[in-house]
Design a protein around this nucleic acid. Structure first.
Lengths: 188, 188
DNA sequence: TCCAGTTTTCTAGCATCGCTAGGATTGCTA
DNA sequence: TAGCAATCCTAGCGATGCTAGAAAACTGGA
């Protein structure tokens, strides 16, 4: 039975290689350059193999990459929590800047991931929890959950508009400081 | 020479029909359903005609639609300015909800439009100016330009995350109220 | 060791996409 | 009316995501 074990291990390893190759290619050339043919060539198998791992095709591969991203974002935010609200905001912006394609897969593309529902994966809840942790102390009488969503939206908007060169580069640091100023004060 | 005038008039009208058909189709079925073949069929001409109007192809058509969107957003925001910061925020959210595909063309897709530069089209500057107008009074010692960018990012983030079903529907109205609460107070 | 039977993998192809070259058609000018 | 110029369409290229059916490899029992 060890042979069967080895086979399933090889199989899962190959699945991970697919996602890794997709992420690497996406960061280098963008998700539109991630084609099933190029992915197949990278893992040195034929195209249909991809579909045996991810029946959903390219979208499913992106969703798998996005899930990895949520885990990494959660730990990134957790590391920034010592810096309080400013630390988390900086960590969030840093993550989006370091891994822009992954960020896109998580929040712009891959629309099948269940957000804000019961069946939301734990890693995604963990990300939200990290934001909630720094917002809750400053919520005052305001609804901490809703305020966290607004805080998150601000970070998300900053990150996406900034990367699309829709914001002035000169105000880059100033903007994060303003976020902290507007959200960091306790409301009562 | 009136014949020539009629010809150029017909031509511009056909160009507008292309953009109108693209917008209509995009709102109905999303931008991925807007193909050059379907557009050609809608205006009852062959595919290459599209390229005589928009040498940039599909992207150029989307950019033209986006420009129309900026004009409409500017007047929508202007109408909401009587309601102050809350009015403008509500107008912005309403616009994005009413014309989601157009909003995507303006802010998510169509990356060739020059934002925050010297050659930025007037209609785009006008949108930013509307936001600036309601932010400037509450900026206090804070940089009004940078704060406007943050305010805009918040609205943009709320709108995109909400439409991607990434936010709790229950907090929908509460979120806008929180935006007003956090940005409406004068900082000094 | 060899042979079914199962699982895995690949070849080949479909429909569709954005886009374009080159010929056909139309309308204008002299 | 003949020639010219502008306009338009047919046909096709390369590439996309995805899949059916053949080929290959591996499995376990005689």
């Amino acid at each position: 039975m060890t042979q069967r074990q080895r086979r399933v291990r090889d199989r899962t390893e190959r699945g991970e290689r697919i996602v890794a190759a997709a992420r690497e290619l996406a960061e280098a050339e963008g998700w539109e350059a991630v084609t099933t043919r190029r992915l197949a060539a990278l893992i040195e198998y034929s195209q249909p193999v991809l579909y045996s791992h991810f029946p959903g095709g390219k979208d499913a591969i992106m969703a798998a990459a996005a899930l990895e991203g949520f885990a990494e974002l959660a730990s990134t935010l957790a590391a920034g929590r010592t810096g309080g609200l400013a630390g988390v905001a900086g960590a969030y912006a840093g993550f989006a800047e370091t891994k822009p394609a992954l960020y896109d897969a998580m929040f712009t593309l891959a629309s099948e991931l269940p957000f804000a529902q019961d069946d939301t994966p734990e890693v995604m809840k963990a990300c939200f929890a990290e934001l909630f942790a720094v917002i809750e102390p400053v919520a005052g009488k305001q609804d901490a959950g809703a305020l966290t969503e607004v805080f998150w939206s601000t970070l998300h908007g900053l990150v996406t508009l900034d990367r699309g060169r829709r914001l002035s580069p000169a105000h880059r640091d100033e903007r994060l400081a303003l976020v902290v100023a507007r959200f960091g004060a306790r409301a009562d």
